[in-house]
Amino acid sequence: MRKYNILLLAAFVAGSSGAVSAKGLSGVVLDKRNGIYWQDNADSKESSQDWDDAVEYCDKLKLAGMEHWRLPTFKELFSIVDYNRIKPAINPVFDFTQEGTYWTSTTFATNISRAWTIDFRTGKSFYSYKTTNHAVRCVKNVPEAAAKENK
């Protein structure tokens, strides 16, 4: 039980460095441990849209032959911040990052007109009105990983 907890903790601590480029998939980074694909192409550097458009953009995104993308949760986006770096404060496996604020799917607790964002200049997290324009980096669950989790 104790060993198990230590393993869990080790996995948690290693979490932020789990991202690697997906072989053969252009514009995509694979986070094997969390079982998610990350968008990493010119769009993820240049995009700027309000929250509703960001949700729709990910929903309609077709990347590396894959459909059904979504906005990352706050927890997911936080996992790729690298607090040892600034401008951008992101895991160096990512090539296309705007030095600006990115949307998450996590809506503000009691005010649904706001959602959480992370500013990748420093890694600062704050809430923003959904009508504001911010950058977007979509994610997609890896189907195999989802299947393994269900076992």
Partner: peptide
């Protein structure tokens, strides 16, 4: 250094 607010959960230097 980083500080975190438990008002809403925001973090900043």
């Amino acid at each position: 250094a980083w500080r975190l607010s438990f008002r809403y959960g925001e973090a900043e230097p």
